[in-house]
Design a protein around this nucleic acid. Sequence first.
DNA 1: TTCCTATGTAACTATTTAGTTATTTAGCGG
DNA 2: CCGCTAAATAACTAAATAGTTACATAGGAA
Lengths: 217, 217
Amino acid sequence: MARSMAAKDGEAPRTRDAEATQKRILAAAKREFSRLGLGGARVDDIAEKANANKRMIYHYFGSKEDLFKKVLEDAYQDIRAAESKLDLKGLPAETALEKLVRFTWKYYLDHPEFLTLVNSENLHKARHLKSSQNIEAINRPLHNMVQDILDRGVREGVFRSGLDEMQLNVTIAAVSYYYFTNRFTGAVVYKRDFMTEEALRARIDFNVDTILRLVRV
Amino acid sequence: MARSMAAKDGEAPRTRDAEATQKRILAAAKREFSRLGLGGARVDDIAEKANANKRMIYHYFGSKEDLFKKVLEDAYQDIRAAESKLDLKGLPAETALEKLVRFTWKYYLDHPEFLTLVNSENLHKARHLKSSQNIEAINRPLHNMVQDILDRGVREGVFRSGLDEMQLNVTIAAVSYYYFTNRFTGAVVYKRDFMTEEALRARIDFNVDTILRLVRV
DNA sequence: TTCCTATGTAACTATTTAGTTATTTAGCGG
DNA sequence: CCGCTAAATAACTAAATAGTTACATAGGAA
């Protein structure tokens, strides 16, 4: 006769904790989506690596696409929250800008999954982000922060005026983002390891220099 | 009784042309791989869009992965060939560098598939490129070209010395590459269309400025 | 103590997918 | 113009995959 219990032999039945299960699913989904992209990630694998059941993924998140959307929203929320903690208000414009450039670099270095998630979302023409309700509010503080630094720099007489906040922001992201996401083809094309301590130090210094030269009068 | 002919009713049997078939397969594969990534592209779809048969893909290219590898090698070959036609040898260093920056921008704009192919390859840690025999020779002219420009600029007294060719090359690529690949999330985050004529003009001018400020003494 | 529902498991399904096999035939060398 | 090989087609297979259904039960509310 079949056992009536669902739990495996020898294992105590799991204590129930909806919140913890959702967190484990989100963490596993983030790993898998960033490692393999939306198309390459497998729902079965996410369930297994979350130590959960596929049924729970559909129960809590609706579909693979909706799960991806939630992972992506959380990723944006996380980077914007980390940026907000920088507190650059009181600093001279140049110092503030350098801090922001170094922060961006460090965040990408420590959260490589953010980069591949964003890449995957762009491969899909940002259709998940487009339908996100929260994303506008999430990103607003970043625009204000950079605009403030630019304004302050002009008032201090150290930055040129008329600089576009978006162009600067995109360039700050670009010089770090591209280095990391393209480090594998880069290693082949330039025949060097992009991730040694020495290589990383050289690149972030170069990036700070690039951005400061860009804004200075 | 079943028809013995393989061709569809009413269609003349295809004239045989191995080279043309391979070209159609490569073109369709490039489109599909760049549109959906290595993981997202479907061999059946590639065959159909190539107006060919799946069997031919395996016959000529061995496997889906090998087909991707060939598409990628061709893509690198194409951009490097286009670069070689620039012929910057006789120009002043600043003019040559600006031409290279504008060329890179224009190439990415006209060949968006190159960007997504490279992204896909980096998601897979460049394992196809790593095992490519030709890729080293394909990329060598680029290094020489940029190193020559840097050397000439120093001799002319307009560029600083000690600049790393790789850092400059990566930055030239980064400021254009990132703008294009992240234009979808960018449109959401900055609430503007990245691809209007005006937006494109503003960005390329900004990029030229960024790079020239970076190298000037 | 007893229900009831949210939490959880496992087995199932319909479809898709990379890769193969069986077969046909165009077009060229002799 | 014969016969062979490379080019081409279509049908097939085994495995994988997103999503569903059927069922079990922990643990809180009544």
